[in-house]
Design a protein around this nucleic acid. Structure first.
Length: 674
RNA sequence: GCCAGCUUAGCUCAGGGGUAGAGCAACGGUUUUGUAAACCGUCGGUCGUCGGUUCAAAUCCGACAGCUGGCUCCA
């Protein structure tokens, strides 16, 4: 899992760049400049997880619900063993929405069709009301049980050692207490805690089956994993299942299709988002909003191309270190032809591209090298700093096909990117500036349900680039900025990348998965690699500090999260269609057309529903299309020069003069009211 | 990439070795309508693609593509 940490003094070309090697999985390596780390910025499909081993004390702090679910995992294992006695269990923790157990079962593949059978067996185990009994073991006793196949089994299983339990046993540090839990015939290596009797494990439902690698490591054996959920009462279980159904209705993929916001077309390619006209409106509004804020806060907007020379990314380090996360390099046409004439092999081509003997281009995985070269276009004085370069820059990442899906896990995405070049003394103020921007935008959108992670350096380590005094200042600035934000935050020492500390914003999607949105990262490394400098007040050359920031990560992911946040009911300023004018009959159609035209002239996105439907049907259609404002117009309104206003969420708002409605809506849009 | 499940009309889905089904949408007509569904009719699919088994394949088998979930929130 640990990757070598690229240091500026390492020669990139000496790395074994051509051996594909295991792709980084799960927690992405956090070691690269801006970065292919667990940042969105950065890497779309990264979900968050901690890799620290929990202490026994921490484990004992399980909530009651977690304890119940953990016990349910044991009950499920018991049931599965009754059906397939040869199952080898690995581990079965409680997780956020339930529990799972990983096991190897060579003679049978579990499918959802088996759930009924397993659940029935689980109900029997619950009915038998077995007691969960804890026993402390010596390492030798535990080992003997595992050797006989007894651990994670209903009986001794000659010839079937408890292989995973043996391995897990080895992972328990010397001096830590080793214990097992028994319910009925089932004995499992387990730190606990558990509920007292299996009768508590009645309200259970198996949810899904999947595969997983042992320890999440794709070089280890592949196991089957069954997910389940459990609650103290049947009512809570039913409520949970109901909530899941409701959540599915807000899934951005479903709403995106219903509202025709975006599409993924397999003729274009997996993980490549097509913004449909309706979705493009939303994105354009968001970008306009962000750009407006950037102008107010002293950013300069730039544009850069979608590719750059390979050498640029050799210098930045992206190409050598993250090759497996990028689209393949594009060789120069002339050189390619020459190589073809020489009957050069693909291996030679790869090696040539890696070593630099063959020139080429790369679809850009990040915007920073381009921005760095913009900074370097002219000599800089300390008076020029900070330089803030912003771009809605589209970047391309090679994700494994199984990782792709929706707008949150894609292969091409547009970052609301910016790079700030400043003096070490300016870092604190710049960080605060970034956070203010984030807060402005998130507040405007009513998104208050997020948390923040502050990644700090490990004080005992010497692996970091840059002056420790500057790190201290930057870390303190990040911490203060997090406090100032006023949302829950955690400080995570040792989680900083080698090149600088950072702050990440984390939100949950409707299915409860956590995603990183934005990030603000301090970088002492890239200025070094690109030999950036400015002339200080002392007339000497100094190295600037860079800050990477993408408050929303990517427009794709952010829009996906927004769709779910609003369940498709966007505020008027974002809504693809803001107003639908609904004449009651043809008698009032002329006036309705007039109103619609006035709305359009006023800059509103308005349409007229001239179908022969009755008003109830028109309202229903507009409602299902999630149009925020409906204007009902009959003969009364036409006579009075008025409209009857109905809001999709707030219902009937009464009859108002046309001009009043026009002005109010214009103000609502201009102020970006929710 | 790997494992599992899935792919039938624009959408949601039923069916299933022997002439392809429903609702909604779309289109045409009748209705001139007051805050979440008027009525009648019409159109629409080589059942993801390719190959195999069979007298016969949407159905069974295989490959491929795509979609969905998962791939240590540690005994």
């Amino acid at each position: 899992m640990e990757r070598p940490i690229p240091r500026p003094d390492h020669a990139p070309a000496q790395e074994p760049v051509l051996t594909p090697g295991p792709a980084p999985r799960g927690a992405m390596p956090s070691a690269f400049p801006l970065s292919f780390g667990p940042s969105p910025f950065i890497f779309p499909p990264c979900r968050l997880m901690s890799t620290d081993r929990k202490s026994l004390e921490e484990r004992a702090q399980m909530t009651d619900l977690e304890r119940l679910r953990h016990s349910c995992a044991h009950v499920m294992a018991t049931a599965i063993l009754r059906l397939w006695p040869n199952a080898q269990f690995a581990y079965g923790p409680p997780v956020e929405n339930g529990f799972y157990y990983d096991f190897d079962l060579p003679d049978h593949r579990i499918t959802p069709d088996d759930f009924e059978k397993i659940e029935a067996e689980m109900k029997k185990v619950a009915k038998e009301n077995q007691k969960f009994e804890r026993r402390v073991l010596t390492r030798d006793e535990a080992r003997a049980l595992a050797e006989s196949g007894r651990l994670g089994g209903l009986a001794e299983r000659p010839g079937h050692r408890s292989v995973f339990k043996l391995d897990l046993l080895d992972k328990i540090p010397e001096g830590e207490e080793i214990s097992c839990y028994q319910n009925g015939d089932f004995i499992d290596l387990c730190a606990g805690p558990h509920v007292n009797y299996t009768s508590k494990c009645k309200n259970v439902k198996l949810m899904s089956v999947s595969s997983s690698y042992y320890l999440g490591d794709d070089t280890k054996p592949q196991l089957q994993r069954v997910y389940g959920t459990a609650f103290p009462t049947p009512e809570e279980l039913a409520q949970h299942l109901h909530n899941l159904e409701e959540a599915k209705k807000r899934d951005h993929r479903r709403i995106g299709r219903e509202m025709q916001l975006f599409a993924v077309d397999d003729k274009v390619g997996q993980g490549l988002i097509l913004w449909l006209p309706q979705g493009a409106i939303i994105r354009q509004q968001l970008q306009d909003f962000i750009s407006e804020e950037l102008r107010k806060t002293g950013y300069s907007q730039v544009f850069t191309p979608h590719i750059g020379k390979l050498d640029l990314y050799r210098t930045s380090g992206h190409f050598p270190y993250y090759q497996e996360s990028q689209f393949a390099a594009i060789p120069e046409r002339d050189q390619l032809q020459k190589l073809a004439d020489d009957h050069c092999s693909c291996a030679e081509l790869s090696a040539g591209l890696a070593s630099g003997e063959i020139d080429g281009y790369l679809l850009k995985p990040m915007n920073c090298p381009h921005h760095i070269r913009i900074f370097a276009q002219s000599p800089k004085s300390y008076r020029d700093l900070p330089v803030r370069l912003a771009e809605f820059g589209t970047v391309y990442r090679w994700e494994q096909s199984g990782e792709l899906g929706g707008m949150t896990r894609v292969r091409a995405f547009t970052q609301d990117d910016a790079h700030l070049f400043c003096t070490p003394d300016q870092v604190g103020a710049e960080i605060i500036g970034c956070l203010k921007l984030v807060k402005t935008v998130l507040t405007t959108l009513g998104m208050n349900d997020y948390r923040v992670r502050v990644s700090l350096r490990d004080p005992d380590s010497s692996k970091y680039v840059g002056d420790p005094a500057n790190w201290d200042k930057a870390e303190e600035a990040l911490r203060q900025a997090a406090v100032w934000l006023g949302v829950p935050f955690t400080e995570e020492p040792g989680e900083a990348a080698f090149y600088g500390p950072k702050i990440d914003f984390v939100v949950k999607d409707v299915i409860g998965r956590e995603w990183q949105l934005g990030t603000v990262q301090v970088d002492y490394n890239l200025p070094e690699r690109f030999d950036l400098e400015y002339i200080g007040a002392d007339n000497a050359r100094h190295r600037p500090v860079m800050i990477h920031r993408a408050p929303f990560g990517s427009m794709e992911r952010f829009t996906g999260v927004l769709i779910e946040h609003f369940a498709g009911h966007f505020p008027a300023w974002l809504a693809p269609e803001q107003v639908r004018v609904l004449p009651i009959s043809e008698k009032s159609e002329a006036f309705a057309t007039d109103v619609c035209t006035r709305l359009q002239l006023d800059g509103r996105r308005a349409t007229l529903d001239a179908t022969p439907d009755k008003i109830g049907a028109k309202i229903r259609t507009a409602q299902l299309d999630r149009v925020p404002y409906m204007l009902v117009i009959g003969e009364k309104e036409a006579a009075a020069g008025a409209v009857s206003v109905r809001h999709a969420k707030r219902g009937d708002l009464g009859v108002r003069p046309v001009t009043e409605f026009l002005n109010d809506l214009a103000a609502e849009v201009a102020e970006r009211r929710l």
